[in-house]
Design a protein around this nucleic acid. Structure first.
Lengths: 133, 133, 133, 133
DNA sequence: GTGGTCTAGACCACG
DNA sequence: GTGGTCTAGACCACG
């Protein structure tokens, strides 16, 4: 489970865990039927409170991303990708929507957004290495 | 005061007020020296408790965005734009950065982002009205 | 009336006026029997609200520093210096007491205070000009 | 927590709490990583409302003196000493500066200050107990 | 159990 | 009339 958590973030830990697992599903690192570590183990790995992990798993179950079978453990659900929009496109779409909302509130014309993003991406590339990053 | 609050949001109301006023400064709707509506008026307009508004104003003062003179009222500070970190470009840039971070974590190639944003903007336009929105 | 007021100070304006006048008395710039400008005039000179000046004068009267004679105006009281400890020594003593209180709260040994003050005075002299300032 | 509050002071209670904790950091009584008593405990000890203590802690967080993790408690921040502006010398220096300013305004020669302080300290000692106090 | 938010309402300080 | 403080009390989010 490669989840890097940031305790300093305003996003609550359990939410970071939820987001992280959804992302792993979206990216294909976790697939239908894969077993998710037990709450106990996951808590130990991530060095967070068990309640926190339990809450995250609960949320993921409510979203249909995982399925718990009593006595057997927790598994990535059959339709995990579609469920909860956990596809790469779904998550990216949500992120873009957040940007659009902010732009609207700032009174920025939406048709200018793609160009603004393009410029920013270029800046990032220059700052962090080669152009293709 | 065009501040619309979302009581259902996880973002606390006083924080929404803080963000909203900083945004108004960023957009140029509020300028150095302008008086901010009184706490009582704002509270009435927004239909929230006076204390909640007072808290927001105090935060803005601590951040250097406003300057309050007891008995007189609250005014946009001289150096508000900088203090607000708030040029429109700055806030938009931060929002774009959050998108870029998400894209990275999803393993989406950055050069594909502008196009993805363009498509999403078009969808929004169709959903909410005319193409130019 | 050479009173410089600082609207940005946490000390309320009326208190700054009170302090300023007491200081003028202590320094001998105002003496028993001198007339104090009317509230109206003083407010105009200092560019502050009349209520503010009125409150300051009221306080000074309560402290025995000034004496208002109806229909004639306000005057520095006969025993203004002694009254309200408005002597130079009195005001300086109060200021020293505030320093002593702070030192106590910081757990600084009081016998070390005079030396600490001496060093700081030297620094100030060097910073602001000749040694005698 | 050795914080004594003065309810009669013009300084608001929450501010007294802020000052008190910063002082404890400055004095070294609280160090990086130390847990600050819980809001509820502090409120009980100081016999003030929980909200009042909460406000103080939030101010300290905004100032970077403490770091609070909801559900876990509040801790002295890593860089607390600097953030507190707070080295013992710093706070004492500011207090001395205030005395110097007052002396200047009263036209007292600065080189006479240390001796004036020495005399006052002696008086205090006699008034409150033994000479060494 | 921890801190955070919000309300209602009282009272105060300042101008 | 303006903002600031404080309390009591309810409810919530997090771990």
């Amino acid at each position: 489970m490669l989840l890097d958590l940031d305790p300093a973030s305003p996003v609550p830990i359990y939410q970071q865990v939820v987001d992280g697992i959804r992302r792993l599903v979206a990216v294909g690192a976790l697939r239908s039927g894969d077993q998710v570590p037990t709450v106990r183990d996951l808590a130990a790995q991530l060095r967070v409170n068990r309640n926190t992990v339990a809450r995250a798993i609960q949320d993921l179950e409510a979203q249909g991303v995982v399925r718990t079978r009593v006595g057997q453990g927790t598994f990535i659900a059959a339709a995990a990708e579609e469920a909860a929009g956990a596809s790469r496109e779904g998550l990216l779409g949500e992120a873009i929507d957040r940007l659009i909302t902010e732009a609207r509130q700032l009174g920025v014309a939406l048709q200018d957004l793609p160009e603004a993003v393009r410029r920013r991406v270029v800046e990032h590339s220059h700052r962090h290495g080669k152009g293709k990053r």
